[in-house]
Simulated assay, not measured.
Amino acid sequence: MVAEKLNTLRALFAEMEQALIAYSGGIDSTLVAKVAHDVLGEGALAVTAESPSLMPEDLEEARQQAAVIGLRHHIVKTHELDDPNYANNPVNRCYFCKSELHDTLKPLAREWGYPYVVDGVNADDLSDYRPGIQAAKERGVRSPLAEVGITKLEVRQLTQALGLPWWDKPSQPCLSSRFPYGEAITVEKLQRVGRGERYLRQLGWQALRVRSHGDTARIELPPDQIQAFVAQTDLPALVAAFQDYGFTYVTLDLEGYRSGKLNQGLSLAAAQS
């Protein structure tokens, strides 16, 4: 079944002949980029958006992965924080993020002769609250994984089957996803969240989030790692580091990490507004 979907994905790219890939370096867009490159060769171009909401190490990983694949790779700057509709962090913040992204990529695609812009949206994303998907659709962006019906689990299976070493890479959405809706986002806030997550990863913890709630940092880890984290971490040193980054309080979420957790407070009415 998964092999059949891979063949269908390859056939989809063969029909395109040329494609510009919105490439974040995450596992979804990297699979899209890999298959596009395998089918189209020089007809595939990956473009990564550099902005304050992307950690520098994630940008470097995107570069390294593109090099491993042999993929043509270009970096552009986006300026979503200049838009108050984004910086004020409404429930549809991602709509304005993807609007900025694709309003940047579409002219490049036209200028460079690429008839298609594609992204890494997978079939599971369609069942979550993802206002950015609407922004992409409005601009004619295609989502090959979703079109073929490839789920997040199948993305990992295919990435592993294709021999890519990052098949188990944790999901890493943009840093703006660390803020509850309604809390304004600034470069300084993004930087302190990024520093907090970098600190924890350097201690050996990988699947995590540092959520920002005003002056409070809320650390999320997988539930089965919480006890080990408390036992093994120098908590006073951690608190001192986070306070140095600009937080006043540091907390640990006892429920643990869950993707999309900040969406749980959204009512259907808010999500549709």
Rank of each mutant, 00 (worst) to 15 (best):
Q191M: 14
R195Q: 15
A207H: 15
R178W: 03
R178G: 03
G214I: 09
K169Q: 07
P173M: 09
R218V: 13
Q172V: 02
W166I: 03
T186D: 11
D168S: 09
P165W: 08
S177N: 05
W205G: 00
Q157T: 11
Q206C: 02
P170K: 05
P223V: 06
P173E: 10
L145I: 11
V141Q: 06
I185Y: 13
T216I: 14
S212Q: 14
F179M: 05
R201Y: 02
G194Q: 04
L175F: 09
S176Y: 13
V155G: 03
P173R: 11
W167L: 00
V141S: 06
Q157H: 10
V210N: 07
R209G: 00
D215A: 13
P223T: 06
R192I: 14
F179G: 02
L208T: 07
Y181L: 12
A146F: 11
F179N: 10
L175D: 07
T186H: 12
I219C: 10
T186K: 12
R192L: 15
W166D: 01
E220F: 00
S177E: 06
L208P: 02
Q202I: 03
S176T: 14
D168G: 00
V210G: 09
H213C: 06
A207Q: 15
G196N: 09
A146S: 14
P223M: 02
E183H: 14
E188F: 04
I185C: 08
L190F: 11
I185V: 15
V148E: 08
L162I: 09
T151E: 09
W166N: 00
A146Q: 13
K169N: 00
A184G: 12
R142P: 07
G196I: 09
V187N: 11
P144D: 08
T216P: 05
S212C: 15
T159F: 03
Q172I: 01
I185F: 10
K152C: 08
G194C: 01
F179V: 04
G163P: 01
R201P: 01
I219D: 03
G204Q: 01
Y199G: 01
E147M: 14
L153V: 13
L175S: 13
T186P: 04
F179K: 04
P223D: 01
W205R: 03
R156V: 07
R201A: 01
E154C: 05
I150Q: 09
L158S: 05
L162P: 03
T186N: 07
L158M: 14
R201N: 01
I185A: 08
R195M: 13
W205A: 01
L221Q: 05
V210D: 02
P170Q: 10
E197D: 13
V193I: 14
E147Q: 14
A184P: 08
C174T: 01
L153G: 12
S143E: 08
G182S: 12
R195S: 10
V210I: 13
S176F: 14
W205Q: 02
P180T: 12
G182D: 09
T151F: 04
T216H: 12
S212D: 14
P222V: 05
W205M: 03
R156D: 05
L208W: 08
C174M: 12
V210E: 09
L158D: 00
A217T: 09
W167E: 00
E220C: 04
R201C: 01
G149M: 13
R195T: 05
A146Y: 06
L175I: 11
W167T: 00
S176E: 13
L221N: 06
V148N: 03
R195V: 04
V155I: 07
A146N: 06
A146T: 04
S143N: 12
